[in-house]
Computed example of a mutant assay.
Amino acid sequence: MKLVPLGDRVVLRQLVAEETTKSGIVLPGSAQEKPQQAEVIAVGPGGVVDGKEVTMQVTAGQKVIYSKYAGTEVKLDGTEYIIVKQNDILAVVE
């Protein structure tokens, strides 16, 4: 199956959480903080959303940072994705 976002939506796949700290301490799964970095999997077409012209500024394959409580989590074929609006993406990681 394939996710195709509509309007100004973006499909993200969250990057893996760090399992050890910089000092080498191993973190159990419950102590790991969910990363706010993700890879862009698919991008909607943009267009007119709520009466405003929206141009998509991210492309598939980019790594981005998104708002902590943004989006809707979806599980498809055993992989978890997050669908967010473009304005919930804070920055592109280069």
Score class of each variant (00 low, 15 high):
residue 94 E to G: 09
residue 71 G to M: 05
residue 7 G to H: 12
residue 45 P to E: 11
residue 31 A to P: 02
residue 78 G to A: 09
residue 58 V to C: 04
residue 21 T to W: 05
residue 75 K to C: 13
residue 88 D to V: 00
residue 58 V to N: 04
residue 59 T to I: 09
residue 23 S to V: 00
residue 81 Y to Q: 01
residue 64 V to R: 00
residue 59 T to S: 12
residue 64 V to S: 00
residue 45 P to R: 11
residue 57 Q to K: 14
residue 7 G to Y: 13
residue 83 I to Q: 01
residue 5 P to V: 00
residue 21 T to R: 04
residue 12 L to D: 00
residue 41 I to P: 03
residue 8 D to K: 02
residue 74 V to Q: 15
residue 78 G to I: 07
residue 28 P to F: 05
residue 47 G to H: 05
residue 25 I to V: 12
residue 32 Q to C: 10
residue 12 L to Y: 03
residue 58 V to R: 01
residue 66 Y to R: 06
residue 60 A to V: 12
residue 3 L to S: 08
residue 36 Q to A: 06
residue 56 M to V: 07
residue 87 N to Q: 06
residue 43 V to L: 04
residue 52 K to Q: 14
residue 76 L to C: 10
residue 7 G to M: 13
residue 5 P to M: 04
residue 43 V to T: 05
residue 61 G to H: 11
residue 49 V to Q: 02
residue 47 G to Q: 03
residue 14 Q to S: 11
residue 79 T to L: 15
residue 18 E to Y: 08
residue 87 N to F: 15
residue 52 K to M: 13
residue 83 I to K: 02
residue 42 A to S: 15
residue 60 A to K: 07
residue 83 I to F: 04
residue 46 G to N: 04
residue 5 P to H: 03
residue 15 L to E: 08
residue 70 A to V: 05
residue 29 G to E: 12
residue 93 V to G: 00
residue 20 T to Y: 14
residue 91 A to H: 04
residue 48 V to M: 09
residue 27 L to S: 07
residue 12 L to A: 03
residue 12 L to F: 06
residue 7 G to A: 15
residue 3 L to T: 08
residue 38 A to G: 09
residue 86 Q to I: 10
residue 17 A to I: 05
residue 66 Y to H: 04
residue 15 L to Y: 02
residue 47 G to D: 07
residue 16 V to P: 10
residue 86 Q to L: 10
residue 66 Y to L: 03
residue 40 V to I: 12
residue 79 T to I: 15
residue 22 K to R: 13
residue 65 I to T: 02
residue 86 Q to T: 08
residue 59 T to H: 09
residue 65 I to N: 01
residue 31 A to Y: 14
residue 41 I to C: 01
residue 30 S to V: 11
residue 1 M to G: 13
residue 66 Y to A: 01
residue 82 I to R: 15
residue 41 I to M: 08
residue 27 L to N: 07
residue 49 V to I: 15
residue 17 A to T: 01
residue 78 G to V: 07
residue 31 A to T: 08
residue 47 G to L: 07
residue 47 G to W: 02
residue 3 L to Q: 10
residue 4 V to P: 00
residue 91 A to S: 14
residue 30 S to N: 13
residue 80 E to W: 09
residue 54 V to G: 04
residue 15 L to H: 11
residue 90 L to T: 11
residue 4 V to K: 14
residue 10 V to N: 05
residue 2 K to F: 10
residue 46 G to H: 03
residue 58 V to H: 02
residue 63 K to V: 14
residue 26 V to R: 13
residue 34 K to C: 05
residue 29 G to A: 14
residue 81 Y to H: 07
residue 6 L to E: 14
residue 35 P to T: 11
residue 45 P to Q: 12
residue 64 V to K: 03
residue 38 A to H: 00
residue 9 R to Y: 12
residue 22 K to F: 11
residue 5 P to C: 00
residue 2 K to T: 12
residue 61 G to F: 09
residue 56 M to Q: 06
residue 16 V to A: 15
residue 19 E to A: 09
residue 38 A to Q: 03
residue 44 G to C: 04
residue 78 G to W: 01
residue 70 A to H: 07
residue 52 K to F: 15
residue 21 T to N: 07
residue 40 V to A: 09
residue 66 Y to W: 11
residue 8 D to C: 02
residue 27 L to H: 08
residue 67 S to M: 13
residue 28 P to G: 00
residue 85 K to Y: 11
residue 38 A to S: 10
